[in-house]
Design a binder for these strands. Sequence first.
DNA 1: CAGGTCATTATTGTTGACAATAACGGTCGT
DNA 2: ACGACCGTTATTGTCAACAATAATGACCTG
Lengths: 228, 228
Amino acid sequence: MNRIAALPQSLTRADEAFDCLQTAIVKGDLAPGEKIGEVELCARFNLTRGPLREALGRLESRGLLVRRPHAGVKVVSVSAEELMELYRIREVMEGLAARQAAERMTDQEIADLQATLDAHETMIEEAHGQAYYQAEGDYDFHHRIATGSRNAKLAQMLLGDLYYMVRMYRYRLSTSSGRPHRALGEHRRIVEAIAQRDGELAEFLMKRHINAARQNIERKITEGEISF
Amino acid sequence: MNRIAALPQSLTRADEAFDCLQTAIVKGDLAPGEKIGEVELCARFNLTRGPLREALGRLESRGLLVRRPHAGVKVVSVSAEELMELYRIREVMEGLAARQAAERMTDQEIADLQATLDAHETMIEEAHGQAYYQAEGDYDFHHRIATGSRNAKLAQMLLGDLYYMVRMYRYRLSTSSGRPHRALGEHRRIVEAIAQRDGELAEFLMKRHINAARQNIERKITEGEISF
DNA sequence: CAGGTCATTATTGTTGACAATAACGGTCGT
DNA sequence: ACGACCGTTATTGTCAACAATAATGACCTG
């Protein structure tokens, strides 16, 4: 009986390398613009150049790395304007995700989503200004909406492409003081719309939510609270 | 004087392999679902397994290939429903592209765009039912809008991810008899809105245009004109 | 002294061979 | 005869050495 047993543990080295590199880039261990050599990376992650190169190719294809032939690779550095553009893309794509989620999520999934919001609320109260939990909670929320859309490609593009680039800046972009509570309220209203199976409303609210987040960051940039 | 001279010709073998594989998949030379061995691919494109594997990784990361460890790679096969989902993503993303294009394209670019529409019109008249030119012209049109949005990531996602998957089916999806003319008319109205710098209208028209294309395909599928 | 040219050198790109894993076919047992 | 188990085999994953290219520094020249 060869049960589907499946996939969990058949990690190839290239996959490991890909994950390691990706998290390293997102967490900022590899600074944007930093020129990094292949051999140095090999030593750092204890693997050979073969799998590493494969992972590098994947990262480049996803836009987290830029690679000029014979000149090495460097972590992509996205300007403030480009970050704003990312949020504009998120706005329309997550709006679509919210609409489809309202139409397709199971009742159980919606209940779970509401439960996570409760958890986020307690996390925010306990955190008291520490924005870290809010960032994680926010990620969790949007992650569930994306998968709940039942649109495989949409989820892949959001989770696999956009979020990683946004998260690169989440780690140094502490959300402003009052924003976590406001964001949580916006999340609740979106889930409410989903629970009522009101796709149009869910889309509208999600777009406004992300637009608000974008404007929040834009304001901080113009106020010089953030360095690019 | 080392002019920026630049990029055109520094193609690495992995890049070649990537392009070859991609076009082969899009043109249907590699049938969806077909299980293909690495060595066979090497012989087919005259290269070694190193660069090939690198290209394979990139293709997998873009969703054109699926690869199970130690089990080989196979071309992704997208169902009718998934194709519809792709069009829903296109709808919102290209809507955004059209809006930003209306705000950001130069007058010269708009003039060029109008000129290409004229060229498409003559092509359609000359083609007389041959849908091939329409498909190419349509691709050209959407390509220009995407780049005209001045949103690098948006253009990358549209041109690098979505279009290739859609084009996989363009080659066997001949557009219906009257559709080319209708599509051209829709294109003209979109460009008109862009020329008037009316972003909202351009977005609305583009979304409606893609929605119409989606419904057109959906109808053909339900009518059984198409095999999946 | 400044600018350019050339050789050096380090890094990347590529290749072929080696090892590990999973699929496949045959055999055995029930 | 059907099902499960096991050995074989082919394919994939990995590795280390080779070759080619571009960046770096010194040297020469105007």
